[in-house]
Amino acid sequence: MTEINWSQAKAIEPGELPETITRYLTAHQARDIDTAIALYAPDATVTDEGRTHHGPEQIRAWLSRSTDEYTYTTELTAAAKLHDQHYDAVHHLAGNFPGGTADLHFRFTLRDGLIARLVIEP
Rank of each mutant, 00 (worst) to 15 (best):
residue 1 M to A: 07
residue 1 M to T: 00
residue 3 E to M: 11
residue 3 E to V: 01
residue 4 I to A: 03
residue 4 I to V: 08
residue 5 N to L: 14
residue 6 W to F: 08
residue 6 W to D: 01
residue 7 S to A: 13
residue 7 S to E: 13
residue 9 A to M: 07
residue 12 I to Q: 10
residue 13 E to Y: 08
residue 14 P to I: 02
residue 14 P to F: 07
residue 15 G to I: 00
residue 16 E to T: 00
residue 16 E to G: 06
residue 16 E to C: 09
residue 18 P to Q: 08
residue 19 E to P: 00
residue 19 E to M: 10
residue 20 T to W: 05
residue 20 T to E: 11
residue 24 Y to F: 09
residue 24 Y to C: 00
residue 26 T to S: 12
residue 27 A to L: 00
residue 29 Q to I: 03
residue 30 A to H: 04
residue 32 D to E: 06
residue 33 I to Y: 04
residue 33 I to S: 09
residue 34 D to S: 15
residue 36 A to W: 04
residue 37 I to M: 05
residue 38 A to V: 01
residue 38 A to P: 02
residue 38 A to K: 12
residue 38 A to F: 05
residue 39 L to K: 10
residue 40 Y to F: 15
residue 40 Y to L: 06
residue 40 Y to H: 06
residue 41 A to C: 02
residue 41 A to K: 05
residue 41 A to F: 01
residue 42 P to L: 06
residue 42 P to N: 13
residue 43 D to N: 13
residue 44 A to D: 00
residue 45 T to G: 01
residue 45 T to I: 10
residue 46 V to D: 03
residue 47 T to W: 04
residue 48 D to S: 12
residue 49 E to M: 13
residue 49 E to D: 11
residue 49 E to Y: 04
residue 50 G to S: 04
residue 50 G to M: 03
residue 50 G to I: 06
residue 50 G to Q: 04
residue 51 R to V: 15
residue 52 T to N: 02
residue 52 T to M: 12
residue 52 T to C: 05
residue 52 T to A: 06
residue 57 E to C: 01
residue 57 E to Y: 01
residue 58 Q to T: 09
residue 59 I to P: 07
residue 59 I to H: 05
residue 59 I to Q: 10
residue 59 I to A: 13
residue 60 R to K: 14
residue 61 A to G: 14
residue 62 W to P: 02
residue 63 L to E: 12
residue 63 L to M: 14
residue 64 S to R: 10
residue 65 R to D: 13
residue 65 R to E: 14
residue 66 S to E: 11
residue 68 D to L: 13
residue 69 E to A: 08
residue 72 Y to C: 03
residue 73 T to C: 09
residue 73 T to F: 06
residue 73 T to N: 13
residue 73 T to D: 12
residue 74 T to R: 15
residue 75 E to S: 03
residue 77 T to Y: 09
residue 78 A to R: 12
residue 79 A to M: 11
residue 79 A to I: 01
residue 80 A to C: 03
residue 81 K to S: 13
residue 81 K to C: 12
residue 82 L to R: 07
residue 83 H to C: 01
residue 83 H to T: 07
residue 84 D to A: 08
residue 85 Q to R: 15
residue 86 H to A: 00
residue 86 H to F: 14
residue 86 H to R: 06
residue 88 D to I: 05
residue 88 D to T: 00
residue 88 D to M: 12
residue 88 D to R: 14
residue 89 A to T: 00
residue 89 A to S: 14
residue 90 V to H: 12
residue 91 H to M: 12
residue 92 H to G: 01
residue 93 L to N: 13
residue 94 A to Q: 15
residue 94 A to H: 14
residue 94 A to I: 00
residue 95 G to H: 10
residue 95 G to V: 02
residue 97 F to E: 03
residue 99 G to D: 02
residue 99 G to F: 04
residue 99 G to Y: 07
residue 100 G to Q: 08
residue 101 T to N: 10
residue 102 A to M: 07
residue 103 D to I: 09
residue 103 D to K: 15
residue 104 L to K: 09
residue 104 L to Y: 04
residue 104 L to C: 07
residue 105 H to D: 01
residue 108 F to S: 03
residue 109 T to C: 06
residue 109 T to N: 01
residue 110 L to D: 04
residue 110 L to A: 02
residue 111 R to E: 12
residue 111 R to D: 09
residue 112 D to W: 08
residue 113 G to W: 09
residue 113 G to V: 04
residue 114 L to F: 09
residue 116 A to V: 04
residue 116 A to D: 11
residue 117 R to E: 13
residue 118 L to V: 11
residue 118 L to R: 13
residue 119 V to Q: 06
residue 119 V to P: 00
residue 120 I to S: 05
residue 121 E to C: 05
residue 122 P to A: 14
residue 122 P to N: 10
residue 122 P to K: 10
